[in-house]
Amino acid sequence: MRNVWIICRKELGSYFVSPIAYLLLTMFAVIFGFFFWNMLGIFVVEGMEMQMRGQVYPMNINEQVIRPLLMNAGVIGLFFIPMITMRLFAEEKRTGTIELLATSPIRDLEIIIGKWLAALLLYCCLLLFTALNFAFLFRYGNPDWKPLAMGYLGLLLQAGALLAIGTFISTLTKNQIIAGAATFGVELLLWVIGWVGEYETSGWARGFSYMSITSHFESFGRGVLDSKDAVFYIAAIFLGLFLTARSMESLRWRS
């Protein structure tokens, strides 16, 4: 556990002494802020129109603003996660520092978990910016905090799974760009793979839509903790980290 923390601290340090972390934070804040501003604008205009027409449909800020925004945060994250994970192992392999880690009295799994945890903590920092936006809603309105909290849990689990996949892909190459592009491709595929379920109902299509990384987020977005979806994400995290460990081991046999 101590070793995991040593690796994690070092990785966080590398993120924050280089421009990577600040670039990602800025871009994420700007893009999410833009989404927030738009969504809120639509909500306000809709509210005014209803008042003018004299209709009294119940309006719900949780349903109409927070939930779609959380979904969007997940999708924006999809674009940012490859940029977080691509350097994790690829860079160590290119510069040869992997030899230092591999000849130190520390287990492969401790290295892997430390690195993955650092990536997850950086992602948490990104999510803090979304919380900043939501804070305004709490200041001027009174949304329900429980679905929001559940949404964040879902986002973290989803990111954990995607980061684990990215970590695995980063062990496969020395080239950061290849690692990043491959991760992005795989994650994009996992996002859209569920679409087949919308017109096909046979077994393979159900299997495909089960693999979709975004469809499992819906329950969290609604504020419901569905154990089926939580298990999916946790299993994906374990699978990603397991593959990383195997890949690191094979690296030694092959290279």
Binding site: S14, V17, T95, G96, T97, E99, L100, T103
Partner: peptide, 16 residues
């Protein structure tokens, strides 16, 4: 690994 020190061909340093 606890008892060895190793300097590979290129020093394993982190430039940052």
């Amino acid at each position: 690994k606890k008892r060895i020190g190793y300097l590979p061909e290129t020093p394993p340093i982190y430039p940052e």
